[in-house]
Every structure is written in C-alpha cells, then in structure tokens.
Amino acid sequence: MTSTACLRATVPNFGDDQATDRKLAVICSKGNLDMAYPGLILANAALGEGIDTTIFFTFWGFDMITKSRMHNLQFSPAGNAAMHLPLADMHLPQSLAPMPGMTAVATKMLKKQIADLGVPEIPDFLDQIVAAGGHLWACRMSADMNRLSIADLRDDVDGIISASQFIEKTEGAQLLFI
C-alpha cells in the first residue's frame, strides 16, 4: 500500500463529493435575550456544516433585527422557574422576580456569562451568520403590526415577506420554531 492510499482511507468525510440539498429554516419568534440565542447558535452551526440556512423573524423575534431595539434585548427571570442564584444552586423565588431592577441585573449577568464564553452579542452574531452565508427574512404581519418598514431593519435583511412566501422559500427545509 502506498502512503497516499493509506492516508486516503482515513480522510474525514467533509461531504464535498456528495450533492446535498439539506436546508434549515429557523423561525425566531421571541425577543427575550435568552430566547434569541438558541436559534442563532443552531443556525450558525448549520452554516458551519455547509447547510443552506434561513432565519425568519416574526412577532417578538422582530426585535432581533430592528435597528432601534436589537442592542437592547433583555432577560427577565419572571416566569422562568429555572432561574438560579449565582452563588448557590437555589431557585430564585418567583416572588422576587418582578422586583424593580431585577430585569436589568439579570440581563447584565446573562450578557456577562455569554461574553465569557466568547459568544457575541445578538447584532454581532447576526453579522457572523450573514458572513457565513445565512439569509435573514422579516415577517410581513409583524412589520405591519409594529409599523416598521425595511428601512427600520438591519441592512442585511433580505426582505419582508408574507407567511406563504416563507413557506414557498423553505420548501424541503427542516423547520425549527423558537
């Protein structure tokens, strides 16, 4: 066996020779900081695997692409029974969650934890996703409800489309609703 033949047998399969039409569409419908991340992390991972990826922003998820709001997503512990105190593995009592200032404190804490992992803030993360070839689409009904136009959204949003247009564009895609 030649050295080349020996190595060829152990080359990782990057799928370059396989025609793939795998597509992923992520629907981001939440505007809370903690709920903004899962869709972007998965979309980014899919792009890194060479998968054609589209993100559709609707309802509260619109805040992620609205220029005036995208830098100020917040996290509230209210209604989140899985919120723990930082120094002990204890639940934060839900009666304390609506206290004044709690959202600001929780947001700051979450942002720090995410930054410590080297994960970017939402606008920067979307920059990365677009650079990796991802497509961003905005929901027509959400735009109308919020009285927003394409000029109010990130410049790299491909357009504002109706629900049926989204369904057409994502024919054959795996769908993820968040």
């Binding site: 990782p12 799928g15 890194g48 990365q128 650079a131």
Partner: peptide
C-alpha cells in the same frame, strides 16, 4: 468569517 468560508469551503472549522 467570509474569508474562512472562501479558503476552506463549506465546513471551514473542521
């Protein structure tokens, strides 16, 4: 990132 995808197409990290 864009340059990484151009230099190492499809699956740059791997």
């Amino acid at each position: 990132i864009k340059e990484q995808f151009a230099l190492f197409p499809k699956k740059p990290a791997k």
